[in-house]
Nucleic acid binder design. Structure first.
Lengths: 225, 225
DNA sequence: CCCCAACTGACAGAAGCTGTCAGTTGGATA
DNA sequence: TATCCAACTGACAGCTTCTGTCAGTTGGGG
C-alpha cells in the first residue's frame, strides 16, 4: 500500500470525529506505532487539523474536511445559484457563510479555462422587511444541539404567549421563515413564524429525540402535495 | 520535496485546463521526464481525470477538481439550505445537480460525529406554475459558450416577436426567472421573462464580449437599491 | 514518411520509509 | 504525590520505493 493512500485512509478513519488511539490505527493499517506518529506529523504539516493529546488519543478538529470533490460545471452553477439566493433570503450568519463558502470554492476553481467572472446568475432582493433574522442563528444552534428555547411569541391573531419549545427544523416559504417545534405548553407540534418571535433564549436544558416528537413524526403527519 | 506534494503540484498546474507537455512539467518541478510519466500514471490510477494524448500533451478532463475544502458547520448549513432552495425553484437540470452535489458532500461528511440525518431546513414549494423551465438548460449553456439564441417571444403586453439575442445572465426574482441579453433587433439590452419564451434555439453562431454589450455594462446602467 | 510527444521496460543508485528500541512528556486518576 | 496512559522524540539499520538514464514503441498529424 502506498504511503499517500495510507494517509488518506487515516483521514477517512478519524473523520468520524471520535477519539482514536495510535495503537488502534497501527493495528488497523498494519504498520507500526512509530509509523503512525510519523504519519500524524506529516498530516499536521500538510494542514490537516488533527489534534493529538497525550494520554487521550487523536481527533479531528471541528471543521469538517471534504476530500477532493470533482464537480461538474452544472453542479458548480447550482452551487453559485444556491449561495446567491442564500445571500438574499437568509440571516447574516448564513449570508456570511455563503460568501466564505463561495470564496473557498472560487479560489481554487477560478483559474480554470474560461473561468467566468460572472456565473450568469443575478439574484435580486425578493424578500424584504423585518423577518426576525436576528433570532435565526440562535435557533439553528439550538436545532443542532437539541437545546430547548424559551419563546415570547405573538401569533398572527395577536395572541401573546410564552412557550418552551424543542426546535426541530426551520422552513423557508419564499416569504417568511418558520420554525417547527414541539411545544411543551401545548404538548403538540407547533409552527412559529420567526418574524413573530418577540424574544428567544436558550433555557440551558436539552431535549432528546423522542418517538412521536421528532421532525419525522411531524412530516409523516402532513400530506404534502 | 515529497512525492505526494509534487503530485498535488501537478494537479494544481494542469488545473488551468490548458495543454501541458511532460517536458515542461519536468523542468518546472525539477524531475526527469520519466518521473512525470510515472506521476501521471499514479494520478490516473487515483482517479484524477487527466488525459494524455501522444504528440499533444496533458489536459484535465472537464470536471473541475476541488482540493480538500474545510467547511465550517455553518457553511455546510448554508450549502444545504441553498441546494434545498435550488431543488425547489430551478429547472430539472439544476435540480439534479443540486442533488448530486449534496450527495457528494454528504457521502464524505455524513459519518462525522453527530451527523444530522436532517439538516434542520425544510423548503416548501413557493414558486409554482409554468415557468418556462424547459428553456433554462439551453440558455445556461448559451451563456457559458457565448452562443447566440433565436427567440420566439411574447411580451407581457401580448406583443409577439422574434429576436436574436446574446444571453448574458439569468436572474431569479422570487417569482419568475428572467434572462438579460443584448438584443440584435433592438440593438440594446433587453430582459426577457423566461416563462414568456415560446421557443428558443441555438443559431450556431457565437458572440464575443464587446464593450458596451456586456453584463457589466448593463449592471452599471442600473441603480440598484 | 517523418515528426512529435506520450508511453513502456529494465536497471542501478539514491532517497525515503519502516520497525525496533529506548527513552521523555503532559494530563488525568488514585 | 505517585502512577498510568498514550502521545511523542531520536537514532539506526534494513527494506521499499522512487528516480534518472537509456533504449526503445506507439498513435496522430502534417
Amino acid at each position: 500500500m502506498r504511503r499517500s493512500d495510507r494517509l488518506a485512509d487515516i483521514i477517512e478513519i478519524i473523520k468520524d470525529g471520535r477519539l482514536h488511539l495510535a495503537r488502534d490505527l497501527a493495528d488497523q493499517l498494519n504498520v507500526s506505532l512509530r509509523t503512525i506518529y510519523r504519519d500524524m506529523d506529516t498530516l499536521a504539516s500538510s494542514g490537516v487539523p488533527v489534534d493529538g493529546e497525550r494520554g487521550v488519543g487523536y481527533m479531528l478538529r471541528e471543521p469538517v474536511f471534504l476530500p477532493p470533490l470533482s464537480l461538474s460545471l452544472t453542479e458548480l452553477e447550482a452551487l453559485h445559484l444556491g449561495m446567491a439566493i442564500v445571500g438574499q433570503v437568509a440571516d447574516d450568519e448564513l449570508k456570511t457563510a455563503s460568501g466564505t463558502l463561495l470564496s473557498k470554492v472560487a479560489e481554487t476553481a477560478s483559474n480554470r479555462r474560461n473561468a467566468p467572472k460572472n456565473w450568469g446568475f443575478g439574484i435580486y432582493p425578493f424578500v424584504q422587511g423585518r423577518l426576525g433574522f436576528q433570532h435565526m442563528p440562535l435557533i439553528r444552534q439550538a436545532i443542532r444541539e437539541r437545546s430547548k428555547l424559551r419563546l415570547d411569541y405573538t401569533s398572527l391573531a395577536g395572541r401573546h404567549s410564552q412557550r418552551v419549545i424543542w426546535p426541530l427544523q426551520t422552513e423557508y416559504w419564499g416569504q417568511v421563515w418558520t420554525c417547527t417545534a414541539w411545544c411543551e405548553q401545548r404538548d403538540a407540534f407547533r409552527v412559529f413564524r420567526i418574524d413573530r418571535i418577540n424574544s428567544c433564549h436558550a433555557t440551558g436544558y436539552r431535549f432528546v429525540d423522542t418517538p412521536g416528537k421528532m421532525i419525522e413524526d411531524y412530516m409523516t403527519g402532513l400530506n404534502l402535495a
